[in-house]
Design a protein around this nucleic acid. Structure first.
Lengths: 401, 401
DNA sequence: GTGTCGGCCGTCTGCCGACAA
DNA sequence: TTGTCGGCAGACGGCCGACAC
């Protein structure tokens, strides 16, 4: 049983969205918890929604493969161009898990005929806060025997400065979590050798959030001199709920039926995006999609790079080679760009990485200029002939970007 | 995030279903936790499934009214006659909340033409265990300051007898919860005046299950000399999860789409029934439905009785008067028997009780014989003419019961 | 008959520097 | 630089009968 605290935020960049009615959910903190690679599309922009990706998220969350005979939704394209009417950031009250709620409206055929992208619709990378640190908790950090050992650089960078003339130097820290709840900690600099510690208040936080060794905490010191505090749980290889509310089969069907109905009637529908549960983002800025699909030449054998998040919440590149291009599910989702690229990874520890990726996730290594200025982007024949598309767009003419 | 421990059980009456592969979920305990009024339909029997009722359960679970424009499923009848292929009892690993999973298959038009009910399909009332007790926890019971005070009659009825010659008499009790986990308690008879107490082991149970004052515990002493232990949480008036997996709108659509697809293709679909979250049962034995709908005369002004569960897990009757008969939702669900009876309740505290009930929930007070022998039941013109029904059944002839 | 409390003892929480990796 | 430990003091857990409703 879960609640969610939420706050509406237009584009995901409100430093302190004080909306009044609801408790403020800090955007910086949300993004810090979501990870460096996660960016939410801009409010008001056009996006491409992938039912397959959404389905993957539900599969991952319910930990159950689809086994029922899912009805066909012949009218449902594998990629829907949508107007993004609302993006709100949320956090599960029980687990502090971050997720976003988006309201999408599939574009009508007329609206799709003349799409002019705004520069903003390219999608700004999520602004990672500058003064923050993320530490994976040790056994000592989570034990009842002691407090939290703060890495020295982290303490000096994100905590308010201590008065080192006192012995020992100490202060009270107040940090706000994703729900706006405040947590008080005694910050002290002591021991031999000297180190920064959080003592009083730490253990109640650990037990309240049910943190265990391996989970991570994030401290942020923002421009408004607020201390923010988020958590990121370790990827426990546990099975998750069959929900006891609705069968996973019905959830899979519901996701497709909701999208199909919205597409058929050009009405709005609502989805949840859980960045840490979902294998891949499935709501992509239209410009990013168009660039990748129509302005990038890929072929079997081509080398590419792709960004991944490390365990320390930073980013690193992995290299790979394209080994094939084709439909992930030729029967149910023919001509889909979702995970249409089969890849091999350079490193032997590549078992964890997907064997299939989508075009917009990778950066092919070519000699051609990869990213021309977005203002000069112009699409000729957006959909390859023969590809199923939206009504009114099949074999249509130009699409202005 | 939740797991579920489960056990397959043919009809819900296996005293100890040792299925091997999965942990045994005790049927008696499941029914004790579900409540005295809950009975599961028999495996293999025919049932009537009500999408409206299922929808109400999802609404109650997600605590969110339907606000999206739900697509119409014109082919979906408000009541589907189904073969019940599977009933399994489950318990949420996080909360111990009981629920049932059922696999339903809508009958084909041919199968519906000649329905012969077996006597067993009348639905046996759930066998409540004899030696059990249910106590609502007090502040003292859940406080860390002490143990659990066992009501004297309860202890004498369901706990193994103590050797009263010892001073003080005490023993170790081992009780199995819904997941098969064992809990050990020190049972002692001491104090002035003497009373039964559970001391050592009680507090770990309380904290592990996160019990608070107002929740209830159930102890059962079954025929196999096993002590079983279940919990029933108080109806916290809390909002529950919007699930962060799928929007409640999509869940509502998914439930309908899954049922509509199954009905159209006569294929199986799976539902979860949560007896404590759902306002009413929405999978009803066919015989019970038929009796109520075709063999009961009700009219406005008629008096009736209806059973409710008390806070002490027993049963009491409430009296009321029928104030109207008609569709709950004439637009989306015309000619549905779901909550077709508008009622007024005699007692002023009736605010908690539904203003609308279904025919099979009530017991009208008439001078006619209410329940003829099931073997002599015979249906003439099962569906009132003009009522939409299943293909092939409209205005069809007799239906043998 | 049973809910709550004061009293009392024992365990565990939680703060400290030592020490080593 | 920081993870873990032994030492220690105080808080809280938890078992008891008293007492009242």
């Amino acid at each position: 049983m879960r609640l969610s605290s939420s706050s509406t935020s237009s584009a995901g960049f409100n430093p302190q969205p004080e909306e009044g009615e609801k408790k403020c959910l800090n955007s910086e903190l949300w993004h810090a918890c979501a990870g460096p690679l996660v960016s939410l599309p801009q409010f008001g922009s056009r996006v491409v929604y992938f039912p397959q990706g959404h389905s993957e998220q539900v599969t991952a969350s319910t930990n159950k493969e689809v086994d029922a005979t899912i009805p066909n939704y012949p009218g449902l394209s594998p990629q829907l161009i949508c107007q993004l009417h609302n993006v709100t950031m949320h956090a599960d009250v029980e687990t502090d898990e971050v997720y976003a709620q988006m309201t999408l409206q599939p574009l009508s055929p007329e609206e799709q005929k003349d799409i002019c992208l705004l520069p903003a619709e390219l999608g700004t990378p999520s602004k990672q806060p500058t003064n923050y640190f993320c530490k994976t908790l040790t056994a000592s950090d989570t034990s009842t025997h002691g407090g939290f050992s703060v890495p020295r650089r982290a303490a000096e960078k994100v905590f308010p400065p201590l008065d080192y003339s006192q012995t020992p130097p100490c202060q009270e820290l107040i940090a706000k979590d994703l729900h706006g709840n405040e947590w008080k900690f005694r910050h002290i600099f002591r021991g031999q050798p000297k180190r920064h510690l959080l003592t009083t208040g730490w253990s109640v936080f650990v037990s309240a959030k049910r943190l265990v060794a391996g989970d991570s905490v994030i401290f942020i010191w923002n421009e408004n001199n607020q201390l923010l505090l988020g958590i990121r749980r370790a990827n426990r290889p546990q099975a998750v709920m069959p929900s006891s509310v609705l069968s996973s089969d019905s959830m899979q069907i519901g996701l497709l039926a909701a999208a199909a109905h919205a597409a058929a009637t050009n009405s709005r529908f609502t989805i949840f995006y859980n960045p840490r549960a979902s294998p891949s983002e499935f709501v992509i800025p239209l410009a990013k999609y168009a660039k990748a699909v129509y302005h990038t030449r890929v072929s079997v054998g081509m080398r590419f790079r792709m960004l991944f998040e490390t365990e320390e919440s930073s980013v690193r590149r992995y290299m790979g080679t394209i080994t094939g291009i084709g439909d992930l599910d030729p029967v149910r989702w023919p001509n889909s760009h979702w995970r249409s690229v089969k890849v091999g990874w350079d490193e032997s520890t590549a078992g964890e990485r997907q064997p299939r990726v989508s075009l917009w996730e990778i950066e092919p290594l070519t000699t051609f200029p990869m990213y021309p200025s977005p203002f000069s982007l112009r699409l000729k024949r957006p959909w390859p002939s023969g590809l199923p598309s939206f009504p009114g767009l099949k074999d249509s003419g130009d699409m202005n970007l």
